Simulated scan of single mutants.
Amino acid sequence: MNWVTIKKFSHICGYSEDAIRAKIKKGQWVIDQHFTRAPDGRILISIKGVDKWIVS
């Protein structure tokens, strides 16, 4: 599974939920690369996308 909720990703990576939301708001994470919005509007984080961001 690649896409997870902000809450789940927070537990996996150690970033707080607020820090994740801040990265999205500041534009550090790009939509459809690091995160996306599900049809119901929920934000989902790409584990693979953020992993690439970390090592770049």
Score class of each variant (00 low, 15 high):
R37P: 00
I12E: 10
I31L: 11
I20G: 08
I47M: 06
T36A: 13
H11N: 10
I47L: 13
R21K: 14
I12G: 02
Y15C: 07
P39H: 04
I31W: 06
V50Y: 00
G41S: 03
I47S: 09
G41P: 11
G49V: 00
A38D: 03
Q33C: 07
K26L: 12
Q28K: 15
W3N: 08
G27A: 08
R37V: 04
K48S: 14
Y15F: 13
H11D: 15
D40A: 08
S56D: 11
G14N: 13
M1S: 05
I45Q: 04
Q33M: 13
D40Q: 06
T5Q: 05
G49C: 03
D40H: 04
D18V: 09
G49H: 10
V55G: 02
W29S: 09
D51K: 01
G49Y: 01
G49W: 05
K23M: 12
G49R: 04
D40E: 00
I43G: 10
R21T: 01
T36Q: 13
S16G: 04
C13M: 13
G14W: 11
I24A: 06
F9R: 04
G41V: 00
I24H: 12
L44T: 03
F9G: 01
V55Q: 06
N2M: 05
I20M: 11
T36L: 07
T5E: 02
K8H: 06
P39F: 02
V30K: 14
Y15L: 15
V4E: 04
S46N: 09
I43E: 05
R21V: 03
I24W: 08
I24M: 10
N2K: 14
I43F: 03
I12F: 10
G27W: 08
F9T: 09
S46L: 04
G27K: 13
D18L: 14
D51P: 01
V4K: 12
G49N: 01
K48V: 00
I20A: 05
R21I: 02
I6Y: 06
I20R: 06
G41W: 01
I6H: 07
I45A: 01
K8A: 12
S10N: 10
L44P: 03
K8M: 12
G14Q: 14
W3D: 01
T5P: 02
V30N: 11
K52E: 14
K7W: 05
I45V: 11
V55R: 15
V30P: 12
G41H: 00
S56K: 10
D51A: 15
R21Y: 06
I54F: 12
K7T: 13
Q33V: 01
G27E: 04
K26N: 12
I31K: 15
W29K: 14
D18H: 08
W29R: 12
